[in-house]
């Protein structure tokens, strides 16, 4: 009987604990999906550039994360955003679901579309190299 009581909690808890990963694992996964070697150079370009396809208030990743991913950024509401580079913030790229959620939202805001696996691999390669 007991496991019947535990089951709902296990189901509820699963999204938070599961899917832990690391920048290296994730980079390997995105690169494999893309079928190509990641390039930190291209990742930096994508991150720094001003794009036009997305929402006009957020033309670039740097709008919120600043041009220095080792420094804290800021959301449009004034709320601080922790640094993106794993060297400055070890929590980064350790939860697959979290990473996917934010790539999904942020790429849509800036580019107006989802990022490809290759683009994600590039950005991650650059951030992890800092």
């Amino acid at each position: 009987m007991k496991y019947l009581l535990v089951l709902p909690f296990a189901l509820l808890a699963s999204p938070a604990v599961a899917q832990s990963t690391s920048p290296a694992d994730l980079l390997a996964q995105y690169s494999a999906e893309a079928g190509a070697e990641a390039s930190a150079e291209r990742g930096k370009e994508l991150f720094m550039a001003n794009h036009t396809g997305g929402k006009p208030d957020t033309p670039s990743c740097t709008t919120c994360h600043t041009a220095d991913p080792k420094a804290a950024g800021q959301a449009r509401t004034g709320k601080p955003i922790e640094p993106l580079a794993p060297s400055a913030n070890p929590e980064r790229f350790t939860d697959l679901k979290f990473v996917e959620k934010w790539f999904g939202r942020n790429c849509n805001s800036v580019l107006g579309r989802d990022c490809t696996a290759a683009e994600k691999a590039d950005v991650l390669a650059w951030l992890a190299s800092l």
Binding site: K55, T58, R105
Partner: peptide, 11 residues
């Protein structure tokens, strides 16, 4: 939420 105050906050 996908168009949340000119931002994407999809869940």
């Amino acid at each position: 939420l996908d168009d949340h105050f000119i931002e994407d906050a999809r869940l």
